[in-house]
Amino acid sequence: MTSARISGPLVPELIRTLPTPELGLHLLASLAGNANINSSNVLRGFETSYGGGYSGNPTEPDLDRLLQRIADAWAWLVSKGLIGPNPTQDQNWSRVTTEGRALAQDPAALLKLHGAERLAGPLDEALTRARTYFNLGDYETACFAAMKAVEVAVRDAAGLANGLTGTALMQQAFQPEKGPLTDTESERGEQVGMMSFFAGAFGAFRNPVGHRTVHFDDPMEAAEIIQTADLMLRIVRRAQKRNGDADA
């Protein structure tokens, strides 16, 4: 059994000032090259580095605080699934997980984690492909798939012809007063707003090639577009139930 080797201590000022998630990712990068790690070895390594070693004269006056912050960072990494049990060792040993190794040197790691958290809850079943593409890091295709799912759902729920596409489809489906998905019990201003919402969101995000208002390398923005699609689908399902579709 080999013990963990820390790739050099973190700068004390970073430990003092970084938010726990960012500190956690710095710690992750220092651990990624080790096959076996455990929290005790990590903490003792930092204690030795900043505690003056055998001299007994700490180089950092707030040593206890520094160790608490490292412990917090370790706990955060475990909670995010970036550090987990090592199946080849006993329960005292851990490993950097597969996802942790993928994120260890990724400058966008925190954004990817936050984006994934945005999509951690249930989504409409029609967004399964979009979520898969998002998890693969293909954010452009994920957004395209999400809005395509909205287009298909709107057309099916409204019973409109296959030749009707894009914003024209959204405008006809939610046309004030007489659109098949329009809530006729709502005020006209709300009806116009709903039609504009569907047409605007679809027009902005449906065609990534033609619309460059989105930064498709930004996982947070991609997650928010998928969430927008999920909201749109929820509204469509509600309209279906209002129209008597028991399967919606």
Rank of each mutant, 00 (worst) to 15 (best):
E22A: 15
L27T: 01
L23N: 03
A126K: 12
E177G: 00
L103K: 04
V150F: 02
N36Y: 14
Q240E: 14
A223H: 01
Y50G: 01
D247Q: 10
T97D: 12
A120N: 11
S49C: 02
G8M: 10
P219T: 07
L231H: 11
S40K: 09
P12S: 10
R44H: 11
L169W: 09
K112A: 02
Q175A: 14
L82Y: 06
R129Q: 10
P107C: 05
I37K: 00
A73Q: 07
T132W: 09
M195N: 06
Q175K: 14
T97I: 13
L82K: 04
E190Q: 15
A32K: 10
R101A: 13
L164V: 15
L10H: 14
E99D: 12
G121Q: 01
R95L: 05
L123E: 07
N57F: 13
T182S: 04
S186V: 13
D156W: 00
P21D: 04
M1S: 05
R238V: 06
W74V: 01
E187K: 08
A239V: 11
P122T: 15
N34V: 04
A246P: 06
A104W: 07
T48N: 05
D230V: 07
R188S: 02
G244K: 05
V209L: 11
N36I: 12
R237C: 03
P219E: 00
A29V: 05
G100H: 08
G56N: 07
R69G: 10
R155P: 06
A32L: 01
G115W: 01
G137M: 11
C143A: 14
R155D: 06
T165C: 02
R237G: 11
G45Q: 00
R101S: 11
L169N: 09
A239P: 08
Q89A: 15
G159R: 06
E22Q: 13
A4T: 15
N38R: 04
L231P: 00
L169Y: 07
A246Y: 06
G203A: 09
Y139I: 07
A116T: 02
G53N: 08
S196Q: 13
T228I: 03
P61Q: 03
N92P: 00
L164G: 09
T17N: 09
V236A: 05
P58R: 03
G52W: 08
M232C: 14
R131G: 02
S3V: 06
V150E: 03
L18T: 11
T165P: 00
T2F: 12
D156N: 06
H114F: 12
P87S: 10
L136H: 10
D183Q: 07
L66D: 03
L67N: 06
G166T: 14
